[in-house]
Design a protein around this nucleic acid. Sequence first.
DNA 1: CAAAACTTGTGCGTTTATCGAACATATGTG
DNA 2: CACATATGTTCGATAAACGCACAAGTTTTG
Lengths: 254, 254
Amino acid sequence: MTANRDISLTFMKGMTVLHAFDAAATGLTLADLSRQTGYDRATVRRLVLTLVDLGYVEKTGNRFLLTPRVLVLAGSFLRGHSFGKMVQPLLNICAGEIGFAVALAMSDGDHAVYVAQSTLQSSRFTFGFTVGSRVPLLPTAIGRMLLAWGDPAWAEHALGTAPLDRYTDATLSDRDAVARAVQQAMADGYCITRDEFEAGVTALAVPVGGPGRARAVLGLSEPHASLPDSALSATLATLRQCAAELRPGFDISQ
Amino acid sequence: MTANRDISLTFMKGMTVLHAFDAAATGLTLADLSRQTGYDRATVRRLVLTLVDLGYVEKTGNRFLLTPRVLVLAGSFLRGHSFGKMVQPLLNICAGEIGFAVALAMSDGDHAVYVAQSTLQSSRFTFGFTVGSRVPLLPTAIGRMLLAWGDPAWAEHALGTAPLDRYTDATLSDRDAVARAVQQAMADGYCITRDEFEAGVTALAVPVGGPGRARAVLGLSEPHASLPDSALSATLATLRQCAAELRPGFDISQ
DNA sequence: CAAAACTTGTGCGTTTATCGAACATATGTG
DNA sequence: CACATATGTTCGATAAACGCACAAGTTTTG
């Protein structure tokens, strides 16, 4: 654990304030942010004005809101890993072949975060996820696949601490039951969930990388009607092929 | 201008360090970061360890690199503006109708930043841009369209300060020439560039929002051969239609 | 293999930046 | 108009941050 002397409290506070904006599209007042973070409003004011100076936040009236500047670090991360040039084309080919939108996700603490996707021009169905969307680990196919083939130390910890919320009547509400589902995915090398995160929806996920070393997973979600059992084998085969092509960039190196 | 007393220097330093990672996929050492930022390495060490604690950066050996956590703020911004549910489907329809990938961009300081895109499953052409990619304003169709129909005060300032680099032999190298091109786009209500940012490429952009109030632009880039002059009118018409549908979320309110 | 160069970890005295209380002003609401 | 809420600002106190120096570890070079 990092010693207190090695942590910058002011920087930590600043980042807390930045995150307090969250998805507040209509903006927040300084008073709002002070309440949410628990910091003195003079402190919040200085930190917010610093964010304004840096271009992350803009002021409209007495409200502050995030600017597109917050996308820039994401862009750096994606460029550093050649998402635009290498990953996106492979996802596009995969989505074209199976006829469904596909998404790539990685772990982010006790959640999964979407890092790329290929949406279909023809599709009229969407969950509304984008690059940067966070989804829970325990009730989702991609989450369970990350837990199954991701870093074992992280997975063990996350299985014990990730939020265990109920999304539908079918959501597993017992950590042991989720652990068994993860064990099954570990053995199968893929994961399928139905109705657990969103009712009426089948989700598939395959790992990108070997057992214990997968840094990302590739998955899709579709209404049951669009993805009958008869289509699962072929769809999984295509996902796996794409995952194999993506693997060089996502294996945890030894 | 924000008074010095209203700015948190430590937070500012922390953000400088965070940005110093940029697209460095193989990671940076503390010594690297200290050199790049000019900060004492003990200062850098504390700030980086704070980022590790927050989950933005991970340590491998003696190198540090960005984690997918940096996508989360982007995801918040995109969710706050309903990009997944409202914007992406409209971009998909648009891309399907015109047969090219399309992208939505907003201004970010003296650059444009991609905030959404719909890539084609069938296309084999890509610039490698992703959500979060920053592109220059002066040599690009989307940049000039932002300057033409965006906030006039911002545009005046950006026209004078945005980097004027040369990307191809056809890149305009004179600020006045760029200003005239922007004026033309202002009058036309759309912008077309050829070869200026990337050789052999035609780019189109239309504003999302009214004159002086467009917070985003919609655009595409394709090789000349894929986008003959005969296709321009129909393509522009479809882009404009999509922009009209996107408008409610991107007009600067009065 | 040894030396040199580079990097990192840590302690701690000093300094500075930050904090937050208090006061004043502005805005919104009933 | 009174009250509630929000914001801007000052400034003394002090906590946090800084950065130098020393030690140790790692990598590179000859």
